[in-house]
């Protein structure tokens, strides 16, 4: 009788000591799957529009993905070294009778302010929009441009 009871009682741990570990591993994997994939050093920012800025010697180049927004619908203002982009994305209403299968595109207002490392020559800024990507050319101010200084040996 004693032997029987011994095998009847908590046999869980005894049957599979790794079961608990397996479960933990599965939970962790699931948690990582749910986590959005991002690039190293890139954090999901929760901002719109997503913006890339690059620079060369003379200019900054700002690019932002704004599908479905006409160039006219975007307002860009620059003061000193900060640029602000705002506008509204509108999705025209379809006929009332339509039946939606998917509705993933978002509409609404957006506004963003980005500080640049240098002052901008505001008179020479150019902005254009091609295929839903806004591109803004931001020339650096003369004072901010790198200067080559030759060293003379005396």
């Amino acid at each position: 009788m004693i032997i029987k009871r011994y095998f009847d009682t908590p046999t869980l741990w005894w049957r599979s000591p790794f079961e608990e570990l397996d479960r933990m591993r599965r939970d962790l994997e699931r948690a990582f799957e749910e986590f959005p994939r991002t690039w190293p050093g890139e954090v999901p920012r929760g901002v719109f529009p997503l913006t890339n800025i690059t620079e060369d010697k003379n200019n900054f180049y700002l690019r932002a993905e704004l599908p479905g927004i006409k160039a006219k619908g975007v307002e860009i203002s620059i003061t000193g070294n900060s640029i602000s982009i705002s506008g509204e994305r509108m999705i025209a209403a379809e006929d009332e009778k339509v039946k939606y299968h998917r509705r993933e595109r978002e509409a609404g207002k957006f506004r963003r302010m980005i500080k640049l490392p240098h002052e901008i020559d505001t008179d020479k800024v150019e902005a254009k929009s091609t295929n839903g990507v806004l591109a803004v050319l931001l020339p650096k101010k003369e004072a901010a441009k790198p200067k080559q200084i030759s060293v003379r040996v005396s």
Partner: peptide
């Protein structure tokens, strides 16, 4: 890409955001 798909009696319409695609 984000899409909207909707259907009427006559047609199916797909609207997709493809910024930067020529």
């Amino acid at each position: 890409p984000a899409v909207d798909i909707f259907e009427t009696e006559k047609a199916l319409t797909v609207v997709a955001d493809l910024p930067g695609v020529a």
